[in-house]
């Protein structure tokens, strides 16, 4: 029983991070039909920005905030400089550009920050909380992870559902031409969408790094899990990304706890294949209506 609770708690924390990462992928896919393969190294670079600031003697929170701002800026710059020129051409062009950016950011990070493992601090304790006389697998930092992702998702929901800006952003994502005729500055909305997605990706990067080791490739496995989570939920649906992330986190944690931790990556791929075979549009996608 205790093992099950611990496995589920671990899965919940991990699932929240996958959810955030999947959400970053979905925000971009929904507006530009591009899977941003560079999401992981973009998040990695911003985590290193945070590490620089923290190692420079500043507080963890300053580094945390700086990484999020760096994510916002990096996302906007990537969209403006790299993606905008191939906008309206075949989507494969943009996808290959993001793959190229993946390689370039990796190499640059290795040059600038060094290609070795370094420990990244955590804002809260990374020991299990004690309930009575047993220790459960939920750490202070784990709680912070869950709360941080929930807060960011809540803010995104508020933005998209209840503000004029959010309405414009959704219009630009769903139908660029109609949105333009209604006066929406579609270009700006796409830039903002990339910026927000990149910020959410940076948050995921910081949460994975907390109390752990970082190096230029530390996010690469997460992009796979984030992608599986996004496909699971339906690449079109932010709510689906969150549910997909949680389902994936819980499933992988159960596999790791009861079958064997070496099978986690294999299990993720098995889930991806099963989804693509049984329900390729994902659990929450509206894609069928959109294809008509």
């Amino acid at each position: 029983m205790q093992q099950l609770v611990n496995t589920l708690l671990g899965g919940l924390t991990l699932g929240m991070v996958y959810a955030a990462f999947a959400l970053a992928l979905v925000l971009i896919w929904r507006s530009t039909r591009i899977v941003n393969f560079a999401q992981a190294p973009m998040a990695m670079v911003t985590t290193f920005v945070a590490l620089r600031i923290i190692e420079g003697g500043h507080s963890y929170w300053l580094g945390f905030a700086a990484a999020l701002v760096a994510g916002l800026v990096l996302g906007a710059v990537v969209e403006r400089v790299l993606i905008r020129p191939v906008e309206g051409k075949a989507e494969i062009n943009a996808v290959i550009l993001t793959l190229g950016l993946f390689i370039v950011l990796h190499a640059l990070a290795a040059v600038v920050f060094g290609n070795r493992y370094r420990s990244f601090p955590a804002a809260f304790g990374i020991r299990g909380i004690e309930v009575g006389d047993t220790t459960i697998a939920l750490t202070g930092f784990g709680i912070f992870t869950i709360v941080a992702v929930l807060v960011v998702m809540g803010l995104l929901v508020l933005l998209f559902r209840f503000t004029d800006l959010g309405l414009r952003m959704r219009a630009a994502a769903f139908n660029q031409e109609v949105a333009r005729l209604l006066g929406v500055r579609v270009g700006r909305m796409l830039t903002l969408g990339w910026a927000l997605a990149s910020l959410v990706g940076s948050l995921a990067g910081l949460l994975i790094a907390g109390g752990s080791l970082v190096h230029p490739g530390y996010m690469d496995a997460v992009v796979v899990y984030g992608f599986v989570a996004a496909v699971l939920g339906g690449l079109d649906s932010p709510a689906g990304a969150v549910v997909g992330g949680l389902l994936l986190g819980l499933s992988l944690s159960l596999v790791s706890g009861y079958v064997g931790s070496q099978l986690v990556a294999l299990a993720a791929l098995a889930i991806l294949m099963a989804v693509l075979l049984l329900r390729p549009q994902g659990l929450f996608s509206q894609a069928r209506e959109r294809r008509v």
Binding site: D164, L167, R168, R170, A171, F174, N175, E177, V178, A179, R180, L181, L182, G183, V184, R185, V186, Q286, E289, R290
Partner: peptide, 30 residues
């Protein structure tokens, strides 16, 4: 094109021009 509404010009595309993923009221607000 995005400056047309400000000039008082409304281009109404065929009925396919509704944004189906938004609600009726959101379309109007837009």
């Amino acid at each position: 094109p995005e400056l047309m509404p400000g000039l008082g010009i409304a281009h109404v595309p065929e009925g396919r021009g509704v944004i189906t993923e938004l609600t009726v009221e959101e379309n109007l607000r837009l």
